[in-house]
Design a protein around this nucleic acid. Sequence first.
DNA 1: GATGCCAGTTACCTAAAGGATACCAACATG
DNA 2: CATGTTGGTATCCTTTAGGTAACTGGCATC
Lengths: 116, 116
Amino acid sequence: MAKKELSIEQKIKYVQDTLFVISGKWKLPIMMAVNNGNQRFRDIQRAVPNITTRVLSKELKDLEENRLLVRTVYDSLPVTITYTVTPYCKSLKPMVDEMIKWGERHRAELKKARND
Amino acid sequence: MAKKELSIEQKIKYVQDTLFVISGKWKLPIMMAVNNGNQRFRDIQRAVPNITTRVLSKELKDLEENRLLVRTVYDSLPVTITYTVTPYCKSLKPMVDEMIKWGERHRAELKKARND
DNA sequence: GATGCCAGTTACCTAAAGGATACCAACATG
DNA sequence: CATGTTGGTATCCTTTAGGTAACTGGCATC
């Protein structure tokens, strides 16, 4: 089956859908931290520089609602709570990798611009 | 030379840098429209559904300042103004392509979620 | 029994993003 | 000579994102 070619309007719509889910300063960094093995609230907070508890709490709820993270309560004593990424969240990896690459090149570009 | 492995902190920083440049509802859609050949103000406005002149104007200035677009004035009669993408802007393509792909799959995921 | 860690919540505030609407001069088109 | 197009500005307004700071209850540790 031939790969369908999307119209520019469709492409824009899909990009806006994606932006809607990931945009903001914190969602991707949080998912990256959790994916990296930082699964507990304070761990995540330490892994994501400068995020406040209030914002982290709100973002975690948001990500859970959007099925990107799962919150699990273990009834150990004291109770332990972990956040883990879903497979759906992992599907963002190729995009995130491109964002990392671009961010890296962007730093270099900024340096160049300052020296112009 | 071996490909360097970035730490999670570095990766987060680069992603945040990228987010800083592209986030918001309109920047990527505008660049996509311009790249698609919609180079004049009203063309871009028509190509990007629901954007207002005020916002488009502001975003174009922003993108120009960030060296992602170039504004050219032709002194024809009447004067014609075009916006074109820079090579730097084109370097976003792999990332944008991933965002399109993800947005497409996301729609399907949402449908699935509603039927659960 | 004071202090500290965990997982948050609450109230308050500011800045930025974005939308609605009206308007403009210069030209072109019927 | 009325109407439309082009490339925007100017005002005003609402919503959202995000930051600051204080606080809580349960448990553990010194």
